[in-house]
Design a protein around this nucleic acid. Structure first.
Lengths: 232, 232
DNA sequence: TAGTGGTCTAGACCACCCT
DNA sequence: GGGTGGTCTAGACCACTAC
């Protein structure tokens, strides 16, 4: 059983129960790791693992010397797994394919260069492609790649490899900003997504950079009706 | 130093470096924990901790017997901290207040009852309120509370305490589904949010339950232009 | 300064699953 | 069957910080 009291999952479940059922009210001080280990008949390491994860989840506040307390204001924390588009489509049981609409080196608009902290008018590689689920438009990908960081990119055929997959394979570790919003489609986007002009669509804007420089800026415009789901 | 090679953070940093710099390319098989422990001169437990966290973050795929590989499709994981609305407004440097629009016990629509797994026509407490930032509408909160789980709720004045804050104070541990989407405003919503009818707005639907029963279903409709931001 | 959590070690057994 | 990661143990030392 992985729910035995002397497994870390078992200990964690029991701690959770006491928190949920208000045996330990928010703000109250818990027994020390050593005491709990004695009570549960397991090693302190095991209790530590159980409590560490609860602290990471925000349910407990832990301080050396001061001990462990039930968190007063559990800020609910949502974890979103952002899959690559192909996986997202296939997880829905649909067949995925994509079509390259445009792949061209051109001066980027200031909305892109300013977000990426590049000088206005910088030439970048502009890639637009449409992703399909079972032959229906699923989302429009509009991406700008910083050629100063990605010289190779100009020689790639993004009709064969999606830009997303190419980036994953070729760019070292990156961080990014993501924002989610709702916009009304313009005429061009609407026709590509088989939507009505002005219809509300879900948009993800993502800016990616590595330690040195900006890498790419992308806007994903989903077809109408898209929902992003998660569980707390 | 917590970046020594024989600390788990140090090991993790070194593993990350090898992944980022393509010493280990996506899909390739890594040395075993025991081998790495030998190389770094630390215990296998330490290597395990470092690798476990990378696997949880999606960078590694681990299987017993099959070993550890660099993930082919690193699904990036986004952590969203969902603040209570008041905090969200005040973090933007705006003054928050809210107005109760409606608080009434009435049969819930089937869109709500079916999501909450209650029988059609169940009477629930319907609370609608409008939240403001610096006297401009910020979002519309439309909430249904399951009276079977929250008998006390009928006696509360949600003009004084927001339903969100009351729930946090009064309902033990809960889980929930959240979904994000984009919709076009109807006439009523548009006028409340000072938006054009049909304008695209960002919507959060959240369903909350405890171990036994559904608690509440809420739709937050943000005023046009709202963005939800986070960092990877 | 003393008590608490954070971490490391060396060893062990087990669950899983590829071959 | 055997190799791999998953976990537990008992003990130890250390870092932080309330007192």
């Amino acid at each position: 059983m992985n729910q035995d009291v002397n497994s870390w999952r078992g200990v964690q479940a029991e701690l959770l129960r006491r928190i949920n059922e208000r045996e330990w009210v928010p703000g109250s001080l818990l027994p020390t790791e050593a005491e709990l280990a004695g009570e549960f008949g397991c090693a302190r390491t095991t209790v530590n693992r159980a409590m560490r994860e609860l602290a990471e989840a925000g349910l407990l506040d832990r301080k050396r010397r001061a001990g462990t307390r039930v968190a007063l204001h559990p800020t609910s924390r949502v974890v979103l797994d952002i899959p690559i588009i192909r996986q997202e489509v296939e997880q829905r049981g649909a067949r995925w394919h994509h079509a390259l609409l445009e792949q061209r080196t051109e001066p980027a608009p200031t909305s892109v260069t300013s977000r990426m902290d590049l000088s206005a008018g910088t030439k970048m590689l502009h890639v637009r492609s449409l992703h399909f689920a079972d032959n229906h438009p699923f989302l429009l990908e509009d991406r700008w790649l910083n050629l100063a960081a990605l010289a190779d990119a100009e020689t790639v055929d993004f009709g064969k490899v999606t830009s997303n997959e190419w980036l994953i394979q070729n760019v070292p570790y990156t961080t990014g900003d993501i924002s989610f919003s709702a916009i009304s489609t313009d005429a061009d986007t609407a026709s590509l997504l088989e939507a009505q002009e002005g219809e509300a669509v879900f948009v993800v804007d993502r800016l990616t950079w590595n330690e040195r420089e900006p890498i790419t800026s992308v806007r994903l415009t989903y077809a109408p009706g898209y929902r992003l789901n998660t569980r707390v």
